[in-house]
Each structure stands twice: as structure tokens, then as C-alpha cells.
Design a protein around this nucleic acid. Structure first.
Lengths: 179, 179
DNA sequence: TGATAATAGTTATCATAGCAAGTGTTGTCA
DNA sequence: TGACAACACTTGCTATGATAACTATTATCA
């Protein structure tokens, strides 16, 4: 995967060619947001196609991984939601499905009976063991056109964009939840 | 909006802090795809909130803009779909809504009665005239943390990612449809 | 200790996305 | 010219996401 030669790239944009808009983008900012959304949509579907044959949506797979990542102590429902890619999503039904499929198990906590802790089951762990290498490969493929340094630059730029938008609009929990 | 000082940024990742995963990302590629999806999700919702008060989803707004962009000649239904951010989406019902709201009008073409041309109405144009500056502002805000040169770099990187993924997975029409 | 607020989830509602199958129209070609 | 393929949507179905309202439990504090 040779890194792209784009050192002298003309500022006439590829998204514009792809979308074939009659008039040019009204601003570079607009071009960037559209490129971002479009790219994410494409990558999202590519990844979704990897896990769907196993009966999971991408969101379910991510939730399952988050639950496994929490270890033997389990993780409360809302903590999962905070860590999901889509932050606002309704987590309960997603977990219902995972529980129906015996991939996780849930139980109310002892001192605080409001909380529900989630644990991955052996079945869940087994499924993840199967899926992880496939998803890893898909991740690599998705960004295969970027060199390692481009990748890091890419991550930095994305972080910067998130940081501006995290303040207003997508409030995240403040305190450092334990993990 | 001064561009961020990140010249010597440590490679310990912000997404990782945000998502507070117990174990680190398994690869830079994984970190990048998650950062991409998460960032897009945040920006998507920020933009959606701008147009929703006007009764439009972001997808509807985009479709409406595409139709307007086609000019007085109109644009066939499937050409709209090709240019949408979400490529696979079912466009018919989306257009139904726009037509119900009198923002567009549709008619079968004369020689080829399979096609349905879409035109923006005066109401639609008026609504866009109201929305455009708001969306423009939201676009600028979404990427406000990036300098102009960072923006262009960002767009380049996104283009590169799309190009790898466009081949397999998200087949786009080949020929240059007229516009 | 009893009212009120804050937490942690759950449920309801509605709109949209994704996929697949169906319909009507045109093109191709024996 | 008649069958079959290709095209341009359209419709049905299921699942997911966004919001908001609701329930149960715990914390606060006069």
C-alpha cells in the first residue's frame, strides 16, 4: 500500500467529481463536512457488511466489544452508551438483542439497585474472537491508502474536529467514570 | 479561530480518552476508523439540528439542494440518489415527503416514460434560501478548529480513504450522467 | 422523616436506512 | 414481432436511531 502521491494536488476536489454537483462547493468548510460524512458513510457500511453475516449490527458489535473491554467487573448500561460511536442511541433494545442471543448477561447491582451491570458470556467472547480479526482486516483495508504518518495526521485532524463540536451539541459525561 | 497547536502531539490519542477503553486500540487503523465514524456522527447531528426545526431531515435538505443544483432541466430520481451522502438510501419516499411539502414537483419524462424528473418549486427555493446561510455557518463551525491548509489536507485524506473503498463495497455508476 | 430532586434505565413514538422483491417501460435481437 | 433482458423506479419489510416521556431507586435536606 504505497502512500498516495498527492503532493501537488489541484484544489478542484474529488468529492466534487464524485457528486458531480453543477456548481462548486460554496466553501472549503462545506466541502470538508460533506467529504467527512460521505466517507464515514462508506466506511460504516463496509464495516457493517463484515459483522452482519454473523447476525450483528455494527452498533451491536461495538457494544459487545465495549462490554468485553470492561472485564469481569461488568459495566453499567449507560456507561456503554457513552462509549458508543453513536452517542445518543437507545441502548436498552440493543442490549436486549445481545442478551436474547446469549452474547451478554445482565444483572442488577447489589447496593444500588438502579444500575444494571452487563457482562459478556462465553458465547459472546467466542463470537468476538471470530470477528475481531475480520474487523481488524476491514479496518486496515478501509484506510489502506494512507501511510502510517498520514494515518496519524488523519486521526489528529479528526480529533480536532470532534473537540470543537463536543462542547455544544454533543454533551458527554464530565467525570472520569471508572473502568 | 486560531488553528490548533498540535505540532508535537503525543501519539496517545484523544478518542481513546473520550471512549475510555480499558485496553488501547489494537491498531492505528482501528483508531482511525473509529475516530472517523465518531466524528462524522457528531457533525451529522450538529447539522441535522440546524435543518430539523424547518421540518427537514439532513438527507432531505441534501436532496433538495441537489435538485435545485440541477437547474431548470430537472433531474431524474436515481441521479439524485447517486449524489446523496448515503448512497444506498431509498430515495422515493424521501422525495414523496418533499413533494407532499410542496418543495419539489415530479413528472414523468416524455420520450422515456420510465424516468421521473424532479424540479424544485418556488417554495423549495425559498426554504433553501433561508437554510443555506444557516447550514453554511454550521459547516464553518463544524471544522472551525482547522486552519485553511489543515482543511485542505483533511479533504485530501478523506478523498484518499473514499477512493480505496469506492471500488469494492460501494459501487457508483460509471458513466458521466448528464447534468 | 417526608418531600423533592437526581440517577439509571426503560418504553413509546416516529422517521429513516437497507435490502429485496415487484411494476411498468424501453432496448435488443433472433 | 415477440421473447427476454435491462432500466428506472416503487413498495414492503425489518431494524435502527432520535427524542421524549415514564418508572424505579437512591440521595439530599429542610
Amino acid at each position: 500500500m504505497a502512500s498516495l502521491k498527492r503532493s501537488k494536488r489541484r484544489r478542484s476536489s474529488t468529492v466534487q467529481n464524485e457528486i458531480r454537483q453543477t456548481r462548486p462547493f460554496r466553501s472549503t468548510a462545506q466541502e470538508a463536512t460533506i467529504a467527512l460524512l460521505r466517507t464515514a458513510s462508506i466506511v460504516n457500511r463496509a464495516l457493517a457488511r463484515v459483522v452482519e453475516p454473523f447476525g450483528l449490527s455494527l452498533a451491536q458489535y461495538n457494544a459487545l466489544r465495549i462490554i468485553r473491554g470492561a472485564g469481569t467487573g461488568g459495566i453499567p448500561t449507560l456507561s456503554i452508551r457513552e462509549r458508543m460511536i453513536e452517542e445518543g442511541t437507545t441502548i436498552t433494545r440493543l442490549l436486549d438483542k445481545l442478551e436474547e442471543a446469549s452474547l451478554i448477561r445482565r444483572e442488577r447491582t447489589v447496593p444500588d439497585r438502579r444500575q444494571v451491570l452487563c457482562f459478556v458470556t462465553d458465547d459472546g467472547r467466542k463470537l468476538l474472537d471470530t470477528l475481531d480479526p475480520l474487523v481488524d482486516a476491514a479496518d486496515e483495508e478501509a484506510v489502506a491508502s494512507l501511510s502510517q504518518s498520514e494515518l496519524e495526521r488523519f486521526i489528529d485532524l479528526l480529533s480536532a474536529v470532534r473537540q470543537t463540536n463536543a462542547k455544544r451539541g454533543a454533551p458527554r459525561s464530565a467525570g472520569p467514570g471508572r473502568t
